[in-house]
Simulated assay, not measured.
Amino acid sequence: MTDTDVDIRSLPFPEALRWLRENGEPADPRTDVDTASLKSRFPRLAGVETRDLTVETPHGRQPARVYRDPAAEASGHALVWVHGGAFIGGYLDMPESNWVALELAARGIPVLAVDYTKCLGDVHFPVPSDDVLAAWRYARAHADELLGMDADALLLGGASAGGTLTGGAIARLRDAGEPVPAGLVSVYPAAHPDGGCPGEIPDPTSPTTQIALNYAGSAEALADPHVFAGLGTGEGFPPTIVVVCEKDALRPSGEAFAATLADAGVDVTLHVEPGADHAHINEPSDPTVLPTIEAIADWVRAR
């Protein structure tokens, strides 16, 4: 089987993990999701400028990319953005990273999109979380140069596994006494070890629990709010938007996370995208995507 024949999402998780470990990230079969094609399809993106760079982390160098549109009306905030991929896949050129960043930059929200070490074998928490924290600290240290913003105007956000990583990163920053972001953008996160049944003992046969255990590295870590922020109290979190999808099996986790934040007195917005399913922002042709992008952009502008 070639990398263009396999659909990782259709495989049982242990098989997907084994395939990625042996073969690496498969090529995206879509021919219209590269940057040039996206700018041709969506002319509003034409003015977005990008710059690739690397970020030093405790575990090596990770790729990152800056997105800015000099002609866009400034929102007053910039975003450090982390893609998903079940902690075992994903990369900066996937639409959930690249296209989302292009769209937000075109709306006056400069973006630093970042990558992280995948949990393929012996790698587990805190490695990818450390990478996200390193990227966040790098963004703060170079906010003006990279994004044209003061460090205190930076937001942190991510989708799916990226939503999990960014929520956990904020919990770690808070507990370390470091400045937390000006806001959190959490898109269909797995904020609990069994995202379909938050608050219950994780079912070891559940695919979401299998993914969670591979990320966490141990059964004990499944109870750690630095690993899954939905397990914490929510105290000390910044203003947050949580986006969930109507048809997503992980919707209960996002909703429970939003409720936890609200109970802690956090300014939280829960946006439910009608008709959408998990990973919808990784498909530019999905009609539910732009309403999500606009909801995020409106929330950022309202900060």
Rank of each mutant, 00 (worst) to 15 (best):
R174T: 11
N214D: 13
E255R: 11
T209H: 04
V111T: 13
I201Y: 01
W99C: 03
D122N: 08
E25W: 06
G168Q: 11
A74L: 07
S206I: 07
A101P: 14
A113H: 05
S10Y: 04
V289I: 03
D150N: 12
R107W: 08
S218D: 08
P204R: 07
F87W: 12
A264P: 14
G254E: 02
G162S: 03
C245I: 03
E273R: 08
T4Y: 08
E25D: 11
T209M: 02
D32N: 15
A176G: 15
E235K: 10
H271C: 11
G163T: 10
I109Q: 01
D3A: 10
A72S: 06
A256I: 11
P202K: 02
T208D: 08
G90W: 08
F125K: 01
P14D: 00
G275K: 00
Q210T: 14
C119K: 00
A153C: 11
F125T: 12
V268Y: 11
P58N: 10
R137P: 13
L79S: 10
M1K: 06
A36M: 06
D130H: 07
D152T: 11
P63I: 04
T50N: 04
K118N: 14
I170K: 03
R61Y: 07
D93V: 15
D122G: 02
Y91I: 14
A264D: 12
P202W: 02
L133E: 05
S37R: 10
I201R: 00
G217Q: 01
A279S: 15
V114C: 12
A279Y: 09
P29T: 10
A64N: 13
L20S: 07
D34W: 02
D28W: 13
A258D: 02
V55Q: 07
L165S: 09
P179Y: 05
G76R: 06
D263K: 14
G236P: 06
D150R: 10
E22Y: 10
E96T: 13
I109W: 01
L112A: 04
V80R: 07
A259L: 07
A46S: 14
E96G: 15
P239A: 06
A249K: 00
T208Q: 15
T166W: 04
P287I: 04
L147T: 02
T4H: 12
V132T: 08
L104W: 13
A212I: 03
S10M: 10
R9F: 14
G158K: 07
G121Q: 09
L222Y: 05
E96F: 09
F42V: 05
G163H: 05
P225S: 04
G108K: 01
D150T: 10
A176K: 08
G89H: 05
Y215F: 15
D144H: 12
V82R: 01
Q210D: 05
T57D: 11
R68Q: 08
P179H: 13
H271Q: 13
L156V: 11
A134D: 11
H83G: 03
